[in-house]
């Protein structure tokens, strides 16, 4: 990573951590000047950009985030059984406009099931879900058509909303660019790499400008840069008022979310009744 990359990552980190825009610009400009005049490897001078951003946040604090808006998703008392096995028991989650909720838990604890129930793709044995506005859903894998091009996927999703082909294509390409992907080629989905295919999957879910966005570990196969872009995009969507629920097992990202729902069963954690836990302060 050269100095420019380091500064870019620092900028993204400061933005991600909600450092006020003016202060972030000032910090990056100072670091750039220091590197230009003093020379040296930024990793040696300042350390990893994430760590430096953390130190900046500790020193100057963060700008207050926009106040969460009205409730967009309310899932109450969700219980689901497969035969005799109960995978979800009384799970509850409320997410407001402008919030990110992370659904975490051990393998097989029902994270994807919970999300599918919230999306209305599966019925629970008990409980109900209320959604205000339009719903977007990105599955863990699949959900694309092997023999269609990315543009054709955008047209297909756009037609569902009554969007004409040209604007749907343009919107899809623009959303893909946010993830660092130029989607306009003539490559069929089956020939895309796993990570790029997930970018297509994710782009499709944001294309209809959903008020509630449900993401089931959408970053499978992402490289580091795309992963950073992914969280940047989530921050942008959150700031624009989208309520986001993301299933994740990467606990190091939990400081970036507002709410954590841990679905690990009580007998594994000693903790019962999964519900809302604090995330990002």
């Amino acid at each position: 990573m050269n100095a420019d990359d380091w500064l870019r990552t620092l900028t993204a980190e400061l933005h991600q951590r909600r450092v006020a825009a003016d202060a972030a610009r000032h910090v990056v400009a100072e670091a750039a000047t220091h590197l230009r005049e003093g020379g040296g490897d930024p990793w040696v001078v300042f350390g990893p950009p994430q760590q430096y951003a953390g130190a900046v946040v500790e020193s100057i604090g963060t700008a207050p985030g926009p106040r969460p808006g009205p409730v967009r998703l309310h899932a109450a008392g969700i219980t689901k059984r497969y035969g005799r096995r109960t995978v979800l028991r009384d799970a509850t989650l409320t997410v407001r406009a402008g919030q990110i909720a992370a659904v975490v838990g051990a393998n097989g604890c029902g994270k994807s099931t919970f999300l599918r129930i919230c999306a209305g793709l599966m019925s629970p044995d008990a409980g109900e879900v209320t959604v205000s506005g339009r719903l977007g859903y990105c599955p863990q894998s699949g959900g694309t058509a092997d023999f269609l091009l990315a543009d054709e996927h955008f047209v297909l999703i756009g037609a569902g909303q009554g969007v004409a082909r040209g604007p749907a294509r343009r919107a899809g390409r623009a959303a893909a660019r946010q993830l660092g992907w130029e989607a306009g080629g003539d490559v069929q989905a089956r020939h895309l790499s796993g990570g790029t295919r997930q970018k297509l999957n994710l782009t499709m879910s944001t294309l209809s400008a959903p008020d509630v966005l449900l993401l089931d570990e959408p970053y499978q196969g992402f490289d580091q840069g795309t992963y950073v872009n992914f969280w940047d995009q989530l921050s942008r969507l959150r700031d624009a008022g989208t309520a986001i629920v993301v299933v994740t097992h990467l606990l190091n990202q939990l400081d970036r979310v507002d709410i954590v729902l841990d679905l690990t069963p009580a007998h594994e954690t000693g903790w019962h009744a999964p519900g809302i836990q604090g995330g990002r302060p």
Partner: peptide, 15 residues
């Protein structure tokens, strides 16, 4: 069979 996984999300997209 190939459309099985795509259709639910198309349903959410307004179909």
């Amino acid at each position: 069979t190939a459309a099985r996984e795509l259709e639910p999300r198309l349903r959410l997209a307004g179909y």
